[in-house]
Design a protein around this nucleic acid. Structure first.
Lengths: 148, 148
DNA sequence: CACGTACATTTGTCTATACAATTATTGTAG
DNA sequence: CTACAATAATTGTATAGACAAATGTACGTG
């Protein structure tokens, strides 16, 4: 990825700013590739993340707070996101019988099967993104990212 | 930054997926800190970026295509963003006399002065973000990010 | 058991982003 | 000179995200 085009906007950008800009660009690229991979499946990246979390629950229903905690990017708006997944038939939502303030959200059979198709597309996207990286690169990158 | 809480959602996440998630988390943190730093100044991160690009023009007006090219995160919507900066009195916009399809956008004196205050806030935010990094770390991180 | 407080979710509003359609202007081929 | 394509910006629509306010439910104290 070429960061020079942006860097030239102002003269003498120090390495700190340069790194921040670089990270934004990379994140943008990741986002774009992932979103494109999911497009044929008609779900957004966030919807995909919710489905993955629900699958990870292995049948145990999740409530909204759980989803919010586990979601990679914070979502004030999980209600509306779940609404859309319900419309697609991928999840269902019921009021929690033991505590009627809560809701119980489950992935449906249809959702599981759609999700496994998405997995394939996402795996390909990931391989494309990381094609220039060795395992050592990835390890080093993770160590550096941990400093944030 | 602790990525474990998310990682545990599914068992045995390979390093590739882990890295991607880690990057999203870091970008989210950067975004949050930057946005918070700009909040007292009443501009969004994107509006700040536009102002910086305009300052980088050193008096030469920019048209929308230029702004779009230079913007770190792609914006389909630069028109509306500029609208908001005009409302704040930070930029002005005129139809380009030599080619009436184009517009010329300039930063105002008021915009320049507001921008220099924002610079201070952003510099502090950046130092906070990168407090655990040495220059060598940043160089290494940039090299790795270039592989994307 | 009534009251206030805390909890869990939903709703409203504003901004941002992606993408398609539209408008206005310019350039060009016949 | 007219018709058509290309360019530049704007507008419309749908989704997403941040944040505050509102709703409904449960719990603890007197």
């Amino acid at each position: 990825m070429n960061v020079e085009k942006i860097i030239k906007t102002e003269t003498q950008i120090p390495i700190a700013s340069r790194t921040i800009i670089h990270l934004s660009l990379v994140e943008g690229k990741i986002n774009e590739i992932m979103t494109t991979a999911l497009k044929p499946h008609g779900v957004s990246l966030q919807q995909f993340n919710v489905l993955r979390i629900l699958r990870g629950q292995k049948g145990k229903p999740a409530n909204l707070s759980t989803l919010n905690e586990r979601m990679v990017t914070k979502m004030s708006n999980t209600t509306r996101l779940v609404d859309k997944l319900i419309l697609k038939g991928y999840v269902d939502r019921m009021v929690c019988p033991s505590n009627r303030r809560k809701v119980e959200i489950n992935i449906t059979v249809q959702g599981e099967s759609a999700l496994s198709e998405m997995d394939t597309a996402m795996k390909e996207a990931q391989e494309k993104l990381l094609k220039n990286f060795t395992v050592e690169d990835l390890t080093a990158l993770n160590v550096l990212l941990d400093k944030f």
